[in-house]
Amino acid sequence: MQPGAPGNTHHPLGSPRWAGVGALALGVFAFVTTEFLPVGVLPQIAADLRVSLSTAGLMLTAPGIVAAMSAPATLLLAGAIDRRRLLIVLTGLLLLADLGCAFAPNFLVVVLGRALLGAGLGGFWAVALAAGGRLVPARLIARAVSLIVAGITCATILGLPTGSLIGSVWGWRASFAAAAILAGISILGQAVFLPSLPVAEKLVRSDFLLLLRRGKVRRALALVLCLFGGNLAAYTYLSPYLEAQPGLGSRAVPVVLLVFGITSFLANLVIPGALERHPRAVVAGQAAAIAIGLLGLVLSAGTLPVTLLLLLLWAVPFGAVPLCLNHWVQGASTEAPEAGSALYVSTVQIAIALGSAAGALAVQGLGLPANFGLGAGLALVGCLLLLQG
């Protein structure tokens, strides 16, 4: 690290700043809502801009690829810039991306807007996760980060259906216009509620290389790949899996998904206390629950009551894993928390892309629920990584 602006790296602010934590959670909610917004309006976009559905799918691929690179790049380029100012600038990129998509004359402009989203997304996640720990005392860090991560689950439960509804009534461009309004509110919240967050030292490339040389950090990132990748390999095809279940009509699927999402949200809120006291046991429990839940869903296909119970079991780690793994990576990189956050965010984005792609290949080659078996296998590999320390 190199000397930068004065300031501590952890909670130099006196009393907890929960309003600031809320502003960060709203920012995460806005980013994730926009990231997955095309899912609900993809056919409309493809038809309006005269591209195929597969081509329109680039709207989902582009942000993830760019975000994986932008997380570390943003911190290296930002130097000693006050993190409050940096967060506002990154959310400004989200606002520009939403407006660019809302008024795009062609698909190329849409893709460029989505790439701009990725640039802001990776940097915001990395900075926000580290900044959240600076707004509260050490004993409350897990709680603060859980509230920030809850923005992801809220975006899944509320943001995506709302965006899809707006698109079905007023068109897909209105969905992005609404997302732009949300981004503007998020900027206002950060400007009002976030205190100044100076940095004592600015990151340099050697900080990342130092972390990556450590076996504990590499194992932690490999665990992120396994558990996030396993979850996404299965979750991507959860709807068609449910629709194929005897006795569960297509109209009941949204209700099941809503209950799944609410369970995930609640798990994210109740886990921080145990995570602070027994991190290894909690992370191991999440990995085991994913493996048991997904393997059970493979074996129980066609037995509706058992299937629903296993879904609830899986929903708990699905919601808690982002918080647990962020905590695990931070524990392995305590001397460089921002670098650790950047590596975590980059690995998450890579895991999302690879997990979804691997799940698609499993379904294409072996059919449902082979992707659930793949997810269970990855979770078991994660359990083995935990045994190594």
Rank of each mutant, 00 (worst) to 15 (best):
I181Y: 01
A191C: 01
R205L: 14
L313M: 11
L387A: 13
A267F: 07
D207L: 10
G189T: 06
E35Y: 06
L160Y: 09
A179F: 02
P305A: 08
Q245F: 06
R277S: 02
R251T: 15
R277E: 09
A267V: 00
R139P: 00
A104W: 03
G22F: 13
P305S: 05
A288D: 03
P337W: 08
L210R: 12
G261H: 10
Y241F: 14
L90W: 07
L232G: 06
E35N: 03
A244E: 14
R83P: 04
L325Q: 14
R143Q: 05
P254A: 06
I350N: 00
Q349M: 04
L242D: 06
A155G: 14
L374A: 04
L76Q: 04
L385T: 10
G167C: 02
L77C: 11
G230I: 00
S168Y: 09
R143M: 06
G167W: 06
S250R: 15
A144S: 01
P195T: 00
A78M: 08
L313V: 10
Q245M: 15
V345H: 07
V348L: 09
T33N: 10
V169E: 00
L295F: 14
A71Y: 05
S346Y: 07
G151W: 02
S333Q: 03
L24W: 07
L49E: 03
G57F: 11
I185V: 09
G340T: 12
G40S: 08
P369V: 04
I290P: 01
E276C: 02
A351S: 06
A73T: 14
L53K: 12
S54R: 13
R84N: 10
C154P: 00
L37Y: 05
A126I: 00
G159K: 06
A119R: 13
F103G: 11
V217P: 03
R219H: 13
V41E: 02
I352A: 03
V39L: 14
L266I: 15
T33A: 04
R134S: 11
L76V: 07
F193L: 00
V21Y: 07
L368Q: 13
A78H: 08
E201N: 05
A360S: 12
F107R: 12
C154L: 15
V255T: 14
T9A: 15
T156Y: 10
P12C: 07
S239W: 01
L266Y: 09
G261R: 11
T61A: 11
S341A: 15
L90S: 12
I350H: 02
G367S: 05
H278K: 11
